[in-house]
Simulated assay, not measured.
Amino acid sequence: MESLAAVWAAAPGWLMHVLLVDSVWGVWVALFGLLAQAVFMARMLVQWIASERARRSVVPVAFWWLSLGGAAMLFVYGILREDIVIILAQAFGVVVYIRNLALIRAEARGRP
């Protein structure tokens, strides 16, 4: 069985090509970006499952937490990639997700 180091040593060439990066650092940044997108995408799966179970459209609190987590990760990814489009898009989303979580928390505490 090959060691993890041997597999990693062989991987960067093809992996850099697939991920459209030119360094090992770029590979890590791209993998982080893929993880961030997976977290952000998971919110839709959570929302869909909750709605199917309720037989009506439902937005569970987990949707907002996954939205916040995924957007924050994508914001960091945008900074690492120096991509102003991702940075601006996610910065606005983070504000919206935090506000929704604050409204949910206030409602749970019985405040308007």
Rank of each mutant, 00 (worst) to 15 (best):
L45R: 02
A71Y: 03
W28R: 12
R99V: 10
R105E: 14
I104V: 11
F40A: 11
A6S: 14
F75G: 09
G33E: 01
A30S: 14
Q37C: 06
M41H: 02
A11I: 05
R109Y: 01
A50W: 03
V94L: 14
E52V: 01
L31D: 00
A5F: 13
Q37R: 08
R109V: 09
E2A: 14
A36W: 02
G13S: 04
F32H: 00
V7T: 15
F75R: 08
A54M: 10
I49F: 04
S67D: 14
A30N: 09
V94F: 00
Y97P: 02
L35V: 03
Y77I: 01
D83Q: 11
A36H: 01
L20K: 15
W64K: 04
R99C: 05
F92H: 00
A50E: 02
G70M: 07
H17M: 08
G110H: 08
A89F: 05
A72F: 07
L66N: 04
G78H: 07
P60G: 10
I84N: 03
L34C: 08
V29R: 07
E52H: 03
E107S: 15
A11V: 01
L20M: 12
M1R: 13
L4I: 15
Y77G: 00
I79R: 12
L34N: 05
S3P: 08
W64G: 01
A91R: 08
V27W: 03
G69V: 01
V94W: 02
P12Q: 13
L88G: 11
A91L: 09
P112H: 12
W28M: 06
I104W: 11
G70E: 08
V85C: 03
S57E: 12
V27A: 02
L19S: 09
L66Y: 08
L80K: 09
S3L: 13
I104A: 11
V27M: 11
V59N: 11
G78L: 04
L34Y: 01
R105W: 13
Q90I: 04
M73S: 06
G93Y: 14
A10Q: 15
V58E: 08
G33L: 02
A42V: 06
Y77V: 03
G70C: 02
V95Q: 10
L35Q: 01
A6F: 03
W14A: 06
G26Y: 11
W65L: 12
A71G: 06
A30P: 05
V39S: 00
A6G: 13
G69C: 08
V85R: 07
F32V: 03
Q37M: 12
G78K: 05
L15G: 05
E52D: 01
V24F: 05
L4D: 13
A10N: 15
L35H: 02
A6I: 10
V39I: 12
V29T: 06
A108E: 14
G78I: 01
V27G: 04
F92D: 03
A50V: 07
A71I: 07
V7Y: 09
E107T: 11
Q90E: 14
R99F: 10
V94I: 15
V18S: 07
L80E: 11
V96F: 07
R99E: 04
M44Q: 04
S3I: 09
W8V: 08
A38V: 11
A72E: 11
